[in-house]
């Protein structure tokens, strides 16, 4: 399963005086099994991009190809293609509507026209993936749960459609550290166990440093960097210029290098920095 974006441009309110170019000639290809982080300032076009990837928005020009098929092509069954790409919106808990958790999660697979037995299996599996105990929660009303739990129900609702690619728009927004850690470790498991391709939009560079294998940096509708986190975080000036943060570990590393310390230029994980500092200290320690 691959997603290929070719020269994607999107203009809101095209032809009117207030038209704004939200995406400007963006191209990239995502391969199976990648964990891609999409970062950019609010209003940079991230959310617009994400909505193109499963056909909720149509490109003004350019194409989105899923396994080589144009998502907006005339002969394409958009609903079938869309099912392969699960999209979790920002604050997805606001879309819950059913009486019970299980029924809500079943909404997607039901729309896919699956048999009851299959739907059940999907619901079970999806709840397991988001660490919600079936016995305990399946028959509860989603509105009785905590915010973090509701969010996991909503994500399960998308996972139950068994997408090959999972796209999440700021999945940890508004959650406390515990809720955030649960979501992130859940995504880590999905990547490692089910080999789901994951695209995640996030403002948190620390989360990106922890999870992403590749980063797409978007500024003012343009793709300004497409590289490994190591390569991107080694250019703190680029990120700062477009109003984004740099992981603290990379900041420390850059500051120490500025003082003349001999550290590798591309450290961005705290463990790496810790080990480098320990080596430095042991080297400096006369004993």
């Amino acid at each position: 399963m691959s997603i290929e974006v070719r020269h994607l441009t999107h203009t809101y309110g095209e032809g009117s005086a207030l038209s704004t170019v939200a995406l400007n000639d963006i191209s990239f290809t995502i391969q199976e099994g990648e964990f891609v982080g999409i970062v950019g300032h609010t209003g940079s076009g991230k959310s617009t991009l994400v909505q193109h990837l499963n056909g909720l928005l149509k490109p003004t020009s350019g194409q989105v190809l899923v396994d080589g098929e144009d998502l907006n092509g005339e002969k394409v069954n958009r609903r079938v293609l869309r099912q392969r790409i699960g999209l979790v919106f920002q604050y997805p808990e606001y879309q819950l509507f059913e009486e019970t958790v299980a029924k809500d999660i079943a909404f997607g697979p039901k729309n896919q026209g699956l048999s009851t037995a299959k739907i059940d299996a999907r619901v079970h599996h999806a709840m397991e993936s988001v660490h919600l105990d079936y016995q305990k929660y399946a028959e509860k009303s989603p509105f009785e749960l905590s915010g973090g739990q509701m969010r996991r129900v909503a994500i399960a609702g998308v996972l139950a459609m068994a997408p090959k690619v999972l796209i999440l728009d700021e999945p940890t927004a508004g959650l406390d550290p515990r809720g955030r850690d649960r979501i992130l470790s859940m995504l880590e498991e999905l990547r490692d166990r089910e080999h789901t391709t994951i695209l995640m939009v996030s403002h948190s560079m620390e989360d990106m440093a922890r999870l992403a294998t590749r980063l797409l940096v978007i500024a003012e509708g343009k793709l300004v960097a497409d590289d490994t986190p190591r390569a991107v975080f080694a250019r703190p000036d680029l990120l700062t210029r477009i109003g984004l943060d740099v992981p603290e570990a990379a900041k420390l590393c850059a500051a120490l290098r500025g003082k003349g310390y001999d550290l590798p230029p591309d450290l961005y994980r705290m463990e790496e920095v810790r080990n480098a500092l320990l080596a430095l200290w042991k080297g400096a320690d006369p004993c």
Binding site: D181, E248, L252, R274
Partner: peptide, 19 residues
């Protein structure tokens, strides 16, 4: 279930290693 500043956590890690 609360975070601490990354540098404080790093300092704690380094202290654990004897620094």
């Amino acid at each position: 279930h609360l975070d601490v500043p990354r540098m404080t956590a790093l300092a704690a890690d380094l202290r654990r290693e004897g620094m």
